[in-house]
Amino acid sequence: MNDLNLSIAVGDYDRMRPLFNGDVKIDGVDPVFLRLSPEEIFFRAFRHADFDVCELSLSSFAVKTANGDCPYVGIPVFPSRAFRHTSIYVRKDRGIDSPADLKGKRIGLPEYQLTANVWARALMEDEFGVAPRDVEWIRAGIEEPGRPEKIKLNLPPDVKLTDAPEGSTLSALLRNGDIDAMIGPRIPSCFGEANRVGWAFEDPRAAAMDYYRRTKIFPIMHIVGIRRDLAEAHPWLAATMVKAFSAAKSLCAERLGDTSATKVMLPFVEEQVHDTRKLMGDDYWSYGLNANRHVLETFLHHHHAQGLSPRKVDPEELFDPSTFESVVI
C-alpha cells in the first residue's frame, strides 16, 4: 500500500523543521511541504481549500466552524502562539499612556477578525475596560492598500468599522496622525521615535509576563487543519498528524536546550529558555486539547462576544475526536 501523498502548508518555524528535513517521519504519509506566509496560507485555504493539511487562523477557523461550513477539521497542534502586548501601536503625542486611554480613539487594523486582533481586543476589554464599541475601527492593509476580510463577517451594530480612504495604508495613516493607534500581527514600518509611534505598553514583555502569572494564558494564534474529506476517508490520519507534529516540537525543544552552540541568531537564548521554563513550565508551548482548554475557552468566549462567531463554539468542536486521547505505555 502506498503512502498518502499530501500537501502540507505551514510557516518555516523551528518546530516544523524536523518534519521538513525528514528527522521526523509522518506514518503512512508522503508529504509535500509548502513553506508559505500565514497570509497566503489562510487566504488560499479559506477561499479554495488548496491544501490537504495546513496552518489555519484560529479566528477564521472558529467563524467557519460556528457557521458549519469549514472545509477543514482541526487537530490540537498550535504552530503559532504569541502574547499580543506588542501588537498595540500608538501615537506617542496623543496622551495615550496606557491601553485604557484608547477609549474614543481611532484605531486601525488590517482585518477585524484576525486572531491577533481578537486577543488584543480581549486584552483591552478585560484588563483596561475598553470594549470594541468604545473606539472607531479603520480597516486597511498595513503596508499595502486594499486588504479585504478573508471571510464574510456580520458584526454587532454598535461596532464602528469603516474602510480607510482608497489607497491608504495603516502605516501611513499612523505616521501622518490620521489614526491614533493600530493593532495587528506585524510591526508597521512607521514604528519608532522618528515618527512618534511606539507600543501602548512601556514594557510589553513585563506586562505579558504579569498577564501570564495571573491568567496562565499563552495566546494561541494558529491551529493545524486537515481537509475534512481526507480526515473522513482516512480515520487514522488526524492522530497520526498530531503524533508527528508533537515529535517535531519535542525535537526542536531538545535542540534549543543544547547550549554547546546557539541554534538561533539571538543572544541570551540560554537565559531566556531558563526564564521561560521558570515562569511557564517545561512544556511552555503545549499541544493538546486538555492542556489548552482554558486558553481556547477564553478565546472562543471573546470571539463570540466580539460578534465574530454567531454562537459560542465549544473547544471540542474545533478538533477531530480521535485527537482527544493518545496512547500511554
Rank of each mutant, 00 (worst) to 15 (best):
residue 108 G to Y: 04
residue 325 E to P: 00
residue 278 K to Y: 11
residue 285 W to I: 11
residue 78 F to L: 08
residue 202 E to M: 11
residue 123 L to K: 02
residue 212 Y to I: 10
residue 234 H to E: 15
residue 20 F to A: 09
residue 217 I to V: 14
residue 325 E to C: 04
residue 41 I to W: 06
residue 6 L to R: 01
residue 233 A to D: 09
residue 155 L to Q: 04
residue 281 G to W: 06
residue 115 T to H: 06
residue 269 V to N: 12
residue 193 E to F: 08
residue 212 Y to T: 04
residue 268 F to M: 13
residue 88 I to A: 01
residue 98 S to W: 08
residue 282 D to V: 09
residue 119 W to R: 01
residue 234 H to Q: 13
residue 110 P to F: 00
residue 106 R to E: 10
residue 63 V to E: 12
residue 171 S to A: 14
residue 247 A to W: 05
residue 107 I to N: 02
residue 44 R to T: 13
residue 204 P to G: 07
residue 327 V to W: 09
residue 295 V to I: 14
residue 34 L to I: 13
residue 38 P to L: 03
residue 225 G to P: 06
residue 140 A to Q: 05
residue 75 I to S: 06
residue 322 S to Q: 07
residue 130 V to L: 04
residue 217 I to G: 00
residue 70 C to K: 08
residue 269 V to P: 04
residue 289 L to M: 07
residue 79 P to A: 07
residue 252 C to M: 12
residue 18 P to L: 00
residue 13 Y to R: 05
residue 137 W to L: 05
residue 236 W to Y: 13
residue 230 L to E: 01
residue 170 L to R: 00
residue 149 E to H: 12
residue 211 Y to K: 04
residue 138 I to W: 06
residue 77 V to G: 07
residue 274 H to I: 11
residue 28 G to N: 06
residue 63 V to L: 12
residue 205 R to M: 14
residue 132 P to M: 01
residue 208 A to I: 06
residue 138 I to K: 02
residue 153 L to N: 08
residue 261 A to F: 14
residue 39 E to L: 10
residue 268 F to H: 13
residue 140 A to P: 03
residue 322 S to M: 01
residue 71 P to K: 12
residue 17 R to S: 10
residue 240 T to V: 06
residue 285 W to G: 03
residue 169 T to D: 00
residue 156 P to V: 07
residue 226 I to K: 01
residue 217 I to H: 08
residue 190 C to W: 02
residue 139 R to Q: 15
residue 276 T to M: 12
residue 303 H to E: 02
residue 204 P to D: 13
residue 177 G to S: 08
residue 196 R to H: 15
residue 267 P to C: 10
residue 282 D to I: 08
residue 47 R to T: 15
residue 96 I to L: 15
residue 270 E to Q: 14
residue 299 F to K: 00
residue 314 D to K: 13
residue 286 S to N: 11
residue 145 P to A: 07
residue 162 T to H: 12
residue 107 I to F: 01
residue 20 F to L: 09
residue 284 Y to I: 05
residue 211 Y to N: 04
residue 313 V to D: 04
residue 19 L to S: 03
residue 308 L to P: 00
residue 155 L to N: 02
residue 219 P to S: 10
residue 71 P to N: 13
residue 245 F to M: 13
residue 191 F to I: 03
residue 325 E to M: 02
residue 156 P to Y: 09
residue 184 G to N: 03
residue 245 F to L: 12
residue 84 R to D: 13
residue 52 D to Q: 10
residue 112 Y to H: 06
residue 121 R to Q: 13
residue 237 L to M: 09
